[in-house]
Design a binder for these strands. Structure first.
Lengths: 231, 231
DNA sequence: GTCTATACCGTGATAGAC
DNA sequence: GTCTATCACGGTATAGAC
């Protein structure tokens, strides 16, 4: 399995100054208000550009959202790939064990680092990304099938080696369910809070990781079908 | 803990024939197209009523969505409460053990039954409900804080008895994470599928339950912090 | 190529006649 | 209760200025 940090396969697009101003304004408003609730007129007003500029530099509102998203996600995805490469190198040289927790941390560490780096979007972008995957936005299919699809292939392979007793179908399900927990946890929407009082402080990244990782690792390591111990 | 099937606390609203026709048309379109993508003009045309009727019988589009939702959710919530009551009665009389899986099944069984009953919305409504909770729709806060909040209280109490070694904060986190898996699984959006091929058949309710329950039970039963075995 | 002004059509909502 | 007319606002498309 070769190193797959595609540094030149998808080079960073060069945006004009106007386009960059639109991207910056849109990012803040999308994160703050959501996609549907943010109007192009708000964005262009805050960016100080004409309304039609967004349809000139980007194709549409959805395409703008995709550009906002891709700008932050691409570096994150590369970091995840670096983690996976490092883990596999450590395993190959006998320096580390390829267990479930190690695979999980190859996603959690970059997510945690990003959530603490405001210059790359910070926790708000992690929340936006998680929400986007959870809500299965159709307008991001293109970007996601490139970047995210590649990551899924790598995580699947790594998890399969960490769970050799499971069939490939079961491994896919474990990854599916595991990512759903991680996305949801990082999305920070408190499902239980809907009665008024909050049961869980769902916004502190360190607290999220502390409670989420043991849950995900245990869930992924569960016995294949109705047996008590792990595989 | 007294039986809490609130049969008269929130009686079924009586809708006029026009309102019912709007509700039926709206339900199908909301499930098929989503909330934002469905217009009131589509709904009223399919229902054979005037556009303004929806704003007369219901307050707004959001309130209509809430009414569509509440009509299906209320019976389901009652069924969940019956399951919890039955479990606690069995435990009190020594006929069953209050373990994590028993609590989980108090949610899974009604969800599975509803997903196989087209007359109450079937699998499409289970998917709609799960998506609504996952996506944290603000327009459903009122309905959810009534019905769902009560359920959360009961599930929290039951899970706390099944996991006596965990603090109440940890129990809340386990329930939060566990429900996020269950919602996501029933929502049926394949997170991994974004590369083109599908890794997981995420729409068959029986298959979902088969893979999801062991995962959730293992995750909820994980050791408190970094220890190998369950509590 | 880049940017602007403006018009178009569909949306949810509302007022007022019947 | 029901309907018609109308409103403000949304994303989008285009003609034309520089």
């Amino acid at each position: 399995m070769k190193s797959s940090v595609s540094s030149d396969a998808h080079p960073e697009p060069k945006y004009s100054e106007t386009a960059t101003r639109i991207l910056d304004a849109a990012e803040g408003l999308f994160v703050e208000l959501g996609l549907e609730a943010t109007s192009l007129r708000q964005i262009t007003q805050q960016a100080g550009v004409n309304l039609a500029a967004v349809n000139y530099h980007f194709r549409s509102k959805d395409a703008l959202f995709e550009a906002v998203f891709a700008r932050r996600f691409a570096p994150w995805a590369r970091e995840c790939l670096r983690e996976l490469d490092a883990l596999e190198a450590s395993v190959a040289s006998g320096k580390a064990a390829l267990d479930v927790e190690a695979v999980v941390m190859c996603y959690v560490r970059p997510a945690l680092a990003l959530s603490k780096d405001p210059s790359r979007g910070g926790a708000v972008f992690v929340r936006l990304f998680s929400r986007v995957l959870v809500e299965n936005h159709r307008q991001l299919r293109e970007t996601l099938s490139r970047e995210w699809g590649h990551l899924v292939t790598r995580y699947t392979a790594a998890l399969g080696r960490a769970l050799p007793r499971l069939s490939s179908e079961e491994v896919a399900w474990r990854l599916h369910l595991g990512f759903s927990v991680m996305f949801h946890a990082f999305a920070g929407n408190d499902i239980l809070k809907l009665f008024g009082r909050s049961a869980v402080s769902a916004r502190d990244p360190d607290l999220i990781v502390k409670h989420m990782v043991p849950f995900v690792v245990a869930g992924m390591s569960a016995a294949p079908s109705g047996k008590p111990a792990a595989g």
